[in-house]
């Protein structure tokens, strides 16, 4: 839903970032307003996953230039956990396994950290169990997964559902979903996409990072951005995604050559 007067949630300006001194992002510009769904597409190595990690504050990525303002304040001033508490959510492409740490306990601590920032009452163990039961339905997840260690021994689909469950619990303002569709069969994809659609409101925004069009059959984006060589090369509506599906990414190379980048 595009409303020009909606709050500007994320304002990315000329963002440059490196990993191990290798420049990956080379000037990304992007504005995300409340109520919007953005899709960022591009080939492997185009920098789209790096963008998501930089926004969430992964320590391996170094911002070398540019700025990101989140609801008016400097995002890079904040530790990763502060960003999460303020409503920035990253759904991981490869959710991390943490042996020994109970999933339920993890979810409770995380949800309460966010709730206390939102001025909501923290939930004790019992209330939280009720609360989480409700959210489980969003992703149709088996409660048995709550008793296991965080992501340990989960299948690819179960891990992604666990991500969306966390999203449901953390009630994000900006949700960045990094290749949430990768490794999912069509049923799991529908469930995950259904979860994302249920959680989208006029007050929040979603940034879908994806390689394929098929996720966009399930979640309709307001904007589609194509990334290449660390920048957003082109922005359009959902038609752009369909066009990409048809023509592939070959035109990207030509455009890069034309711009003298490649």
């Amino acid at each position: 839903m595009i409303r020009p007067d909606a709050e500007l949630l994320l304002d990315i300006n000329d963002l440059h970032a490196s990993v191990e001194d290798q420049p990956i992002l080379k000037g990304v510009n992007l504005q995300v307003r409340a109520g919007e769904i953005h899709a960022v597409m591009g080939r492997n190595g185009s920098g789209k996953s790096t963008l998501s990690k930089v926004l969430a504050g992964h320590p391996a990525y170094r911002v070398t230039a540019g700025s990101v303002r989140y609801r008016g304040s400097d995002l890079f001033e904040l530790e990763p956990e502060e960003r999460a508490r303020l409503g920035v959510f990253l759904g991981f492409q490869y959710p991390v396994e943490i042996p020994g740490v109970s999933n339920l306990e993890f979810l409770r601590v995380a949800a309460n950290a966010r709730r206390s920032k939102q001025g909501l009452e923290e939930l004790d163990t019992f209330d939280f169990e009720d609360h989480v039961q409700e959210k489980l339905q969003v992703v149709q997840m088996d409660p048995a997964f709550l008793e296991r260690s965080v992501n340990e021994g989960f299948s690819g689909g179960e891990k992604k559902r666990n991500e969306i469950l966390q999203m449901a619990l953390l009630d994000p303002v900006v949700a960045i979903l990094d290749e949430t569709d990768s490794g999912l069969d069509i049923d799991a994809l529908r469930i995950v996409a259904g979860g994302v659609n249920q959680l989208a409101t006029p007050e929040n925004a979603t940034l879908l990072i994806t390689h394929y069009q098929r996720l966009l059959d399930e979640i309709t984006p307001d904007y589609v951005h194509v990334m290449a060589a660390g920048r957003i090369l082109r922005t359009g509506g959902r038609d752009l995604a369909l066009e990409l599906e048809k023509t592939g990414y070959d035109w990207v190379d030509k455009e890069l050559v034309a711009q003298g980048v490649a």
Partner: peptide, 18 residues
């Protein structure tokens, strides 16, 4: 650590959880 932090769990708490 980053995974836990990205869910709003502070550094020290993340360490002690693990």
């Amino acid at each position: 650590l980053f995974y836990l932090q990205s869910r709003g769990i502070g550094f020290e708490e993340a360490v002690s959880m693990m």
